[in-house]
Amino acid sequence: MSAAEPLVSVAGLSRVFDVSPPLVTRLLHRSPRRLLRAVDGVDFTIAPERTLGLVGESGCGKSTLARCVAGLMAPSAGEMRFQGKPMDLARRPDRAIRRSIQMVFQDPYASLNPRWRVETSVGDPLLAFGIARTRAQMREQVAALLTDVGLAPDDAAKYPHEFSGGQRQRIAIARALASRPAFLICDEPTSALGVSVQAALLNLMRRLQGEYGLTYLFISHNLAVVDHMADDVGVMYLGRIVEKQPKRHLFDAPRHPYTKLLVQTVPSLETLGRASAPLAGEVPSPVNPPPGCAFHPRCPHADARCRAERPAPVPLPGGGSVACHAVAEGRI
């Protein structure tokens, strides 16, 4: 994707959840273990100060992937390198790495402690990582962070309920920035907000990326938002990245049939008055995924091979890759 040494590289990342019934029930009914492959062998790299956008529908494993990369959840398999050094994802990462990787969550009503003043929420990482030595230093830095995200220094004394959704998300961003991270994972950061608030927040995040030299993993189900924020875009379907390309290639000439479907069905002002032809079917259950290519039951190009054999990612000429037999065979 980019020639620069990647800041983050992830290889073969998988996370499996055991969703089996309790042991006794299993023995009584002689039912096998049931495993949910939320993330299934994901590879990607992100160059410093670039943004990888990740799109996909709910249940495709976007948030699980984000949590694994953030170190909030141990993956079942896979490797991750951060700033060139291998990270042991199974263990709690050391302080230096935890400082450098931060996350912004979807729901600012749930991600801030309602009993903490803004100062405590934003200042806590400053004290925890020893960035501020004294409370006075901490207050000063909190004021600077709040100003950076477009709030007033006086807001530090307030509680989350005194803010609107957009303002709360700004507080969440200020807290994420407090430890001076290099890598910010944003999981649907504007999905709970209206368009005008969303625009302000996206502008803020782009500005902060320049000012703080941030690298983003930006997750959203909204393709237009990802197009605005990302340099490269990965499309996830049932735990796998089915296509990954520089964004212009991906939106102008999507290769994977699922990407084509997503790009076509985005409701937008351009589709005024004519509902886009919706594709039938839904995302299958990750507990019982279809054999072969997970997309084949909904795919207009599926053949016997698609139903039997799982496609491996094939590199594309413009950079990136696509995992589709039909593309690899030149059928589409």
């Binding site: 368009v195 996206l202 393709l223 939106f251």
Partner: peptide, 8 residues
């Protein structure tokens, strides 16, 4: 105007 558009 605030709606993000693909390819804008």
């Amino acid at each position: 105007g605030a709606i993000p558009r693909i390819g804008a």
